[in-house]
Design a protein around this nucleic acid. Structure first.
Length: 368
DNA sequence: ATGTTC
């Protein structure tokens, strides 16, 4: 762990000295200190520069909400499901065709959304988004348990090598941006809890629940298409705000560490590490990395079609992505090695690996 | 990230 370049003790970055983190991201992290009410900032090992601010961080304030730290995709996170199936009995071509149909259907109808807890006004505007993956780094992935690292923990979870699981990474789709737009704020000042902050948080909480429901519907549909029974296992947001008294904890691309097991995925061509977080590490703000983190921005990845075609996915999973530009932007080479990021987490005691999950079929989009 | 983007 190191303090920021300015040496300000309020900023901590949880990476080993040997781990490369883009300077621009650390500068974005330091700039957060100028915002009203900021007490502490924690950078995770997947820290990288974002469009307006750093991705892979947690920010604690006293009584002030900064909606733009969380950004547009309020509630984005990871949901894992256990499936009642084994890799050795899976017919890969059939599974690939099945997951390819994830894009066929629209979302829930309004009544179904309301029945699952979505407020009627929100359902009227956004129900059809429920069960859609979205773009960017979002995906639905069929995985298999590849390696048991903590044998006792795996036994407690009933995990065996070859078991099938689902991982869903998605968010609140159009609802998050709509919530952000409804709550204007000054960039540096943010919203004090009692002058707009709580009103934002009320809408934010709806978006967080909506995002979790979106992931649940996606997992249900994926399991049904695969013809397998399944059950929810983990659901952990990494783009949201939690409140303790007047302390406001923002997470932007940082998984919440006090909700049990967390899947930490690599790129679409890399393993996922299932980890047990420790939320008590000083300065880490009960957070951990939400994935591998980009090492190259999207723009610089475009137009690399030929290189991409030459290089099969490193772990051999099939990827359903009809959108070539998206495939380029999300190429495995755009991301840091996930094993290094997890080693950073372990070096600082932020998490311990329970198991390694291997991608089998990754669904991103069926639309060109 | 986003019913995006001139």
């Amino acid at each position: 762990m190191f303090n920021s370049m300015s040496g300000d003790a309020r900023v901590r970055v949880f990476a080993r000295a040997s781990s490369w983190i883009e300077g621009a991201a650390v500068r974005q992290l330091e700039q957060l200190l100028a915002r009203r009410g900021v007490i502490a900032v924690a950078g995770m090992p997947d820290l990288h520069p974002g469009h307006k601010g750093p991705v892979g961080c947690a920010v604690l304030t006293d009584g002030v909400v900064h909606p733009d730290i969380v950004g547009t995709d309020i509630g984005c996170g990871m949901t894992a499901w256990r499936l009642d199936g084994e890799l050795r009995r899976l017919r890969l071509d059939k599974a690939e065709r099945a997951l390819g149909r994830l894009g066929d259907r629209g979302g829930l109808d309004v009544d179904a959304a309301v029945a699952r807890g979505v407020p009627p006004d929100v359902a009227a505007a956004h129900a059809e988004a429920l069960g859609t993956v979205g773009g960017g780094n979002h995906f639905v992935e069929l995985q298999t348990v590849h390696q048991l690292v903590d044998a006792a923990a795996c036994a407690a979870e009933g995990l065996a090598v070859g078991d099938l699981t689902l991982l869903v990474h998605s968010g609140s789709r159009g609802l998050g941006p709509a919530v952000l737009a409804r709550h204007p704020y000054d960039h540096g000042e943010g919203l004090a809890l009692n002058t707009g902050g709580r009103a934002y948080l009320a809408d934010h909480d709806v978006a967080v629940a909506f995002a979790a429901l979106n992931r649940a519907v996606l997992a249900e549909r994926a399991a049904a298409l695969l013809g397998l029974d399944g059950a929810p296992w983990c659901d952990v947001p990494h783009n949201h705000v939690t409140l303790e008294g007047d302390r406001v904890l923002h997470r932007k691309g940082a998984a919440q560490a006090d909700l049990g097991l967390v899947p930490v995925p690599g790129s679409r061509g890399a393993m996922t590490y299932l980890v047990r977080p420790d939320p008590r590490v000083a300065g880490a703000l009960a957070s951990l990395a939400h994935g591998a983190g980009r090492k190259r921005d999207r723009a610089s990845m475009r137009g690399r079609r030929d290189k991409e075609r030459e290089r099969p996915n490193p772990v051999g999973n099939r990827v359903i992505c009809a959108d070539r530009r998206l495939a380029e932007e999300e190429a495995p080479e755009a991301y840091k090695p996930i094993a290094d990021v997890v080693a950073d987490l372990e070096a600082h005691g932020l998490a311990r690996t329970v198991a390694v999950l291997k991608p089998v079929v990754t669904f991103k989009t069926a639309r060109a």
